[in-house]
Amino acid sequence: MILEAHNLTFYYRNRKKNPIIDSFELTIPPGERVGLKGPSGRGKTTLCRLLAGYERPKQGQVLLDGKPVGEYRGACPVQMVWQHPETVVDPLLKLKETMAEAGGIDKRLVEKLHIEREWMERYPSELSGGELQRFCLARALRPETKILLCDEITAMLDLVTQAQIWEFLLEESRRREMGMLVVSHSEALLEKVCTRIITLD
């Protein structure tokens, strides 16, 4: 599937003169990994939220195979992974239940992401950020997912975990012909991971 953003514009209420995103164009064909860099406060996270359908653009549209991304019912083929994994899992549910809600978890992913069986019985507060981020990736990489948006997903993790996660994601993207948008402030990381880098400013 191809993800396209046309003339994408977004501003908060009453801030029409200072749009966060202004007439942005982007196309992510299958298998391409687009790196996105830019100084802080330029709306990188907002862009990801727009592309994943969390937010509705004020102008322009986000199309997935020609259909607006907000119109997909059920699990969306565009999934976003967030910078802080502890905010995106329900703190009162065991990981087992959170994963069940996302349609169960693939055995292959469990193995590749080094997720241990025993963690499924734990609550989010009993896992480290790196461990939780593995769950979030496993949840986002359900079979329907065709485009993955990664918003600084390893910025809060240590370098070893970062390298592990990207090694896995590269393999996964090649295997599934999955398009990706990679947001990071580390140029070295983007150069290692992406097929193309764009700058937001």
């Binding site: 080094h114 241990e116 480290s128 790196g130 461990e131 240590d158 070893v160 975990t161 390298a163 592990q164 990207w166 090694e167 580390s186 070295a188 990381l189 150069e191 290692k192």
Partner: peptide, 12 residues
Amino acid sequence: PEHGFRAVGGLQ
């Protein structure tokens, strides 16, 4: 990333 981006297995 600039020194090889090599991962070791296992978890913290």
